[in-house]
Simulated scan of single mutants.
Amino acid sequence: MMIDSVFVFSNDLLKYKFNSHHPFNQRRLETTLDLIEKLGAINQEQMVQPRIATDEELLLIHDPNYINAVKLASVGQLSEHVAENYGLGTEDTPVFSNMHDASAFLVGGTLTAVDYVMTGKARHALNLGGGLHHGFRGKASGFCIYNDSSVAIKYMQEKYNARVLYVDTDAHHGDGVQWSFYDDPNVCTLSIHETGRYLFPGTGSINERGQGTGYGTKFNIPLDAFTEDESWLNAYTTALQEVAEFFKPDVILTQNGADSHYLDPLTHLSSTMKIYREIPKLAHKIAHQYCDGRWVAVGGGGYDIWRVVPRAWALIWLEMTENSNCSGSLPAEWVEKWQSKSPVPLPTEWDDPSDLYPPIPRKGEITEKNAQTVEKALYPIRNQKTIK
């Protein structure tokens, strides 16, 4: 029997922890799930345990020497010099005990979500522990050790012969996933992110369109710093609708980094909760329009783990399950439970106040520039010159 949506979670996903002061903090998963539970918006039938990804599955994307290095680092047996060659032991990706297993569980969680959707057990599946889009074939990068989305896409291709549309709305460019499939015409990537002029990883220009037979199936919308809701949503809705119509995928995989918000400490965009209401709505619509509902969603960035991420990520699940209980006040018992642990006052409402930040003086200029960026990024589709 098919159930509409599944939520992948276990405490194993919380073990991906670099150290207590690192910005990547999986407490986000706990606060989000607790918010969903306090709303009465999930039941046990919808909860699914992740499994650990096998070495064979990791090898779909990752180099065997790299996997071995991660395993050695996990037990303190990798020298500092060798670790550095693999992007391990850096400020972004410090080595931690049991790192391989913790990382492989995040990948296995996304593969669990994929199997539920692709075998027809569920129409939609959410693994908020995933979304580690900066991981490369042989190198850790940007808080990411193994790239669960890349592994999941390759897995969907090999096991289910699927054409995959990957949509990345993290403030940071989805570089690891894009480069994994840069010459593959059966994987379309769309990343909407803050311009790399100011932000890691510095890539994601409109000219990165793929290569070889994959040319014309990679799309990037680099937005100007301080972009606000209206301009952000215009870029997202225009690009996703046109790219989906062009590519006609079998399944949609969305990466839902929640770091484009004004309050995020690592980025420079000026969006509010408005975009996090709309992101899953359009993804849901596109999944039903082109993919018979097949939609796998993962987490990603999001470094204001108290005020932003729980609300943004809960909205994905509420959209998946068509639950409209997401306006007005947040559950008081959720606020009370987490306020004592939070270093900042928690929000009490789903939506942000209208005076969240002072007016942006360059709003018109930023909006116009973003509109031109979208126009240039979608030029090949609109002019039917893309090699498909």
Results as ranks from 00 to 15, higher is better:
152 A>Q: 06
188 C>L: 14
159 K>N: 05
187 V>G: 08
189 T>F: 03
191 S>Q: 08
190 L>W: 14
169 T>W: 15
159 K>R: 12
222 P>V: 04
155 Y>M: 11
198 Y>G: 09
161 N>W: 05
207 N>E: 10
167 V>K: 00
225 A>R: 13
207 N>W: 11
190 L>F: 15
217 T>S: 04
208 E>P: 07
170 D>A: 00
209 R>Y: 12
227 T>D: 14
188 C>I: 11
152 A>E: 10
195 T>M: 09
225 A>M: 14
204 G>C: 06
230 E>K: 02
185 P>I: 06
184 D>G: 04
151 V>K: 00
186 N>W: 15
202 G>N: 12
224 D>M: 12
168 D>E: 14
201 P>V: 01
152 A>P: 05
149 S>G: 02
178 Q>W: 07
203 T>I: 03
193 H>P: 05
214 G>F: 04
179 W>G: 00
230 E>A: 10
162 A>N: 05
226 F>C: 13
184 D>L: 00
216 G>S: 13
219 F>K: 04
194 E>M: 07
188 C>V: 10
207 N>V: 02
154 K>V: 04
152 A>L: 13
217 T>A: 02
178 Q>R: 09
195 T>R: 04
170 D>E: 09
160 Y>F: 09
166 Y>V: 01
185 P>S: 09
160 Y>W: 12
210 G>H: 07
154 K>L: 01
179 W>E: 06
205 S>L: 02
153 I>L: 09
226 F>I: 04
219 F>M: 01
205 S>Q: 13
191 S>W: 10
201 P>H: 06
179 W>P: 00
218 K>M: 05
196 G>I: 09
227 T>Y: 10
166 Y>P: 07
229 D>C: 02
172 H>S: 12
171 A>C: 12
227 T>W: 06
151 V>S: 04
168 D>Q: 11
228 E>G: 03
162 A>T: 13
155 Y>L: 03
227 T>M: 00
175 D>P: 12
178 Q>L: 04
165 L>V: 12
187 V>E: 13
183 D>K: 01
219 F>C: 08
224 D>V: 03
164 V>Y: 13
198 Y>T: 13
213 T>S: 10
218 K>D: 14
195 T>P: 02
205 S>V: 03
152 A>S: 15
166 Y>Q: 04
154 K>G: 02
195 T>E: 07
207 N>H: 11
177 V>L: 01
182 Y>F: 15
199 L>Q: 09
164 V>D: 10
194 E>A: 01
175 D>A: 05
229 D>Y: 04
157 Q>E: 15
195 T>D: 12
210 G>Q: 11
192 I>S: 11
180 S>H: 08
228 E>L: 04
224 D>C: 07
231 S>H: 02
223 L>H: 14
207 N>F: 12
218 K>N: 11
173 H>K: 10
169 T>A: 07
201 P>R: 05
226 F>A: 15
152 A>R: 03
151 V>E: 00
226 F>T: 11
176 G>I: 03
167 V>D: 02
225 A>Q: 08
162 A>H: 06
194 E>W: 13
197 R>N: 15
198 Y>S: 08
197 R>Q: 13
199 L>T: 07
154 K>Q: 14
150 S>Y: 08
164 V>G: 07
193 H>C: 08
